[in-house]
Design a binder for these strands. Structure first.
Length: 478
RNA sequence: CGGGGCGUGGCGCAGUAGGUAGCGCGCGUCGUUCGGGACGACGAGGUCGGAGGUUCGAGUCCUCUCGCCCCGACCA
C-alpha cells in the first residue's frame, strides 16, 4: 500500500475517488476495457448491501430465481423502445464452438426481454398472478466512459421483475420497492435520498413511469441510486403475455422492474469519504471495529494479545464484525492510517498501559478525541456506539445535502449556481422535453427527479416561462 | 467517435548521442524497533505491450499493430 498522501477532495475529487478505491483495496481495473475486479473489502460491502436488500425482498413476498446471461437477438428486439434504448450498449456473441452462430446472442444489458418471453408460458390465469421474482445477476452494457463502481461495463445488481393482474397493483409494487430502496440507501448506507419520478426523457426504455431514489455526493453531484419502473402492459404486449381474468376475458399482464447495483458501493464512498479515505457506515462496514494491539517486548505481546483476543471474542459474541490486527510486520501508526483509509468506524488501541489499567483507547473514524473505555464496557456498549456513528454519518450527509439544495430564483442564477457550486436546484418546469433538453445543454444539469405525484409549482417554468406543471430538482449527475 | 495520455521487475516511475536496464515503494532473511504511516544489512525479481524493419548492436530510430487510462457526447 502506498504511504503517499491521498489527493484531497477539494483539489481533485475524481482523483481522490480512484485513489481511495484502489488504496482501500475495494477494486481495481480488469484487463478488458471498463471491467472491474472487485476485491474482498469492496465485495464485502456489496454483500452487506445485498443481504439488506434481499432480506427486505423476502419480507415483501419475493422469491429469487435466475435467468440466462445470453439472450437471442430476436427476443431482445421485440419491444421497440426497449431495443432502441439499449441497442447501442449491447454486446453480442457472434461465434461459439469455433463457428459463426446461426443467430447472434446478446449479453443481457437487463433481463426484461428474456424474462417476459418466459412469463408468457408461466402466466395463463389471474390465479397465476402476481409473480414476485427477483434475480441477482451481472449485466453488461457497453459504456463509452467507465468509472470503477459508478459505471463499469459489467456490473452486479439485482433486478426484480413482477407481473400483476391490475395496473393499481403493479403501481403499488413499483412504489413499494422504491421505498425498500430508500430504506437500504438511508438506513444501511446512510445516504439520504429523495424518492421521485423521472421525466419522460430520463425514463427507462419501455417503461410507462420510472421512479428513482436520488442522492447527493460529496462533490455536490447527484447520483441515481436505484430505479423502480412501472412498465404498464408494454412488455406483456411485446411478448404476448396474457391471462384470463375472473370474468373469463383475456388481458395483458401489468409489469414492474426494479434494480439496485454495485454502483452504490461507489455512492457510499462518495457520500461519506473524507481526505483520510473511506468512512463506512457501520451497517455496511465489513469490519466495524479494528483492534490494534501495541507491544514492545515479547512478554508484553503475549499479554496484550491475550487480552485483545478475549476482547475480540466478546465483540464477536455481541454481533460485532471485528478484526484483531495482529500483523507483526507493521507498527501501530501504520495500522491506524490503514484502518482509517479503509473506513473502519471504530478503532481500539490496546497496549500494556491499557492492560494494566483494565481499559482500552477508542477512536472513532468520525474524529474527535481518543477516549478511554473500561475493558468490561467495550463489548456491551459497542452496538450503541456503532448506531451513533451510523446516525452521525447520515446526519452529516443530510446536512450537506440541505446546504447544497437551492431554490431557483432565476434561470441565470441557476445556471451560474450549478456551475459554481453544484447541488440540487429546485424550481418549476413546464413539462416540455425540448425545454428540458435546452436546459441540459446550457447548464449540463438534468432533471434528477420530479415529485412522485405531479405537483403544481405555482409559477412559470424557470427556463421558458411557460406555465409550470411540476416541481423539478435539477443537478449535474454521475 | 472526437481530444489527450500511457504501456519498462508486484506497484509507481526514470532511462543517457543507439552499446546489453536503473530508482522508490513493495517482497524475502536477519537484527534493532513498535501509543500516528520505523530503520539497518544482505537478497530475490525485468526476453522494456506485440510484429516487422534499419543497424555490428534497438527500451531508445522507422513502419504497422494491440491494449488500457483520462476528458467530452451515451448510460445504473
Amino acid at each position: 500500500m502506498s504511504t503517499n498522501k491521498l489527493p484531497t477532495q477539494a483539489e481533485d475529487f475524481p482523483a481522490w475517488y480512484v485513489e481511495v478505491v484502489k488504496r482501500a483495496e475495494l477494486a481495481e481495473h480488469g484487463p478488458a476495457k471498463g471491467s472491474m475486479i472487485i476485491k474482498p473489502h469492496g465485495y464485502a460491502i456489496w454483500e452487506l448491501t445485498q443481504r439488506a436488500l434481499d432480506d427486505r425482498f423476502k419480507a415483501t413476498g419475493h422469491e429469487n430465481l435466475y435467468f440466462p446471461l445470453l439472450i437471442p437477438m430476436s427476443l431482445l428486439e421485440r419491444e421497440a423502445d426497449h431495443v432502441e434504448g439499449f441497442a447501442p450498449q449491447v454486446a453480442v456473441v457472434t461465434h461459439g464452438g469455433g463457428e459463426k452462430l446461426e443467430e447472434p446472442l446478446a449479453i443481457r444489458p437487463t433481463s426484461e426481454a428474456i424474462i417476459w418471453s418466459t412469463y408468457k408460458r408461466w402466466i395463463q390465469s389471474y390465479r397465476d398472478l402476481p409473480l414476485l421474482y427477483n434475480q441477482w445477476a451481472n449485466v453488461l452494457r457497453w459504456e463509452m466512459r467507465t468509472r470503477l463502481f459508478l459505471r463499469t461495463s459489467e456490473f452486479l445488481w439485482q433486478e426484480g421483475h413482477t407481473a400483476h393482474a391490475t395496473a393499481d397493483e403493479a403501481m403499488a409494487e413499483t412504489l413499494q420497492m422504491l421505498e425498500v430502496y430508500r430504506q437500504v440507501a438511508e438506513d444501511v448506507l446512510a445516504i439520504p435520498v429523495h424518492m421521485g419520478r423521472k421525466s419522460p426523457g430520463e425514463r427507462f426504455p419501455g417503461a410507462v413511469e420510472t421512479y428513482c431514489i436520488e442522492g447527493l455526493m460529496r462533490d455536490a453531484k447527484a447520483l441515481q441510486c436505484g430505479t423502480s419502473h412501472f412498465l404498464g402492459q408494454n412488455f406483456a404486449k411485446a411478448y404476448d403475455v396474457t391471462f384470463l381474468n375472473a370474468d373469463g376475458e383475456q388481458e395483458h399482464a401489468w409489469a414492474t422492474s426494479w434494480g439496485f447495483s454495485t454502483r452504490m458501493v461507489g455512492g457510499t464512498i462518495m457520500a461519506h469519504g473524507d481526505d483520510a479515505g473511506l468512512r463506512l457506515p457501520p451497517a455496511a462496514a465489513p469490519i466495524q471495529v479494528a483492534i490494534v494491539p501495541i507491544a514492545r517486548t515479547d512478554e508484553e505481546r503475549v499479554e496484550v494479545l491475550e487480552v485483545a483476543g478475549k476482547l475480540r471474542a466478546d465483540l464477536a459474541a455481541a454481533g460485532v464484525r471485528v478484526r484483531l490486527d495482529d500483523r507483526d510486520q507493521h507498527r501501530p501508526g501504520y495500522k491506524f492510517a490503514e484502518w482509517e483509509l479503509k473506513g473502519v468506524p471504530v478503532r481500539i488501541e490496546l497496549g500494556p498501559r491499557d492492560v494494566a489499567a483494565g481499559r482500552v483507547v477508542m477512536a472513532s473514524r468520525l474524529g474527535g478525541e481518543k477516549e478511554e473505555v473500561a475493558l468490561a464496557d467495550v463489548a456491551s456498549g459497542m452496538a450503541e456506539r456503532l448506531a451513533s456513528v451510523q446516525k452521525a454519518l447520515y446526519d452529516d450527509a443530510l446536512a450537506y445535502r440541505e446546504a447544497n439544495t437551492h431554490e431557483i430564483a432565476s434561470f441565470d442564477a441557476f445556471a451560474a449556481g450549478v456551475e459554481e457550486q453544484g447541488g440540487f436546484w429546485v424550481g418549476a418546469w413546464c413539462g416540455d422535453g425540448a425545454c428540458e433538453a435546452e436546459i441540459a445543454t446550457k447548464t449540463k444539469a438534468t432533471i434528477r427527479f420530479l415529485p412522485i405525484e405531479p405537483t403544481d409549482p405555482g409559477g412559470p417554468c424557470v427556463h421558458c416561462g411557460k406555465p409550470g406543471v411540476d416541481v423539478a430538482h435539477w443537478a449535474r449527475a454521475y
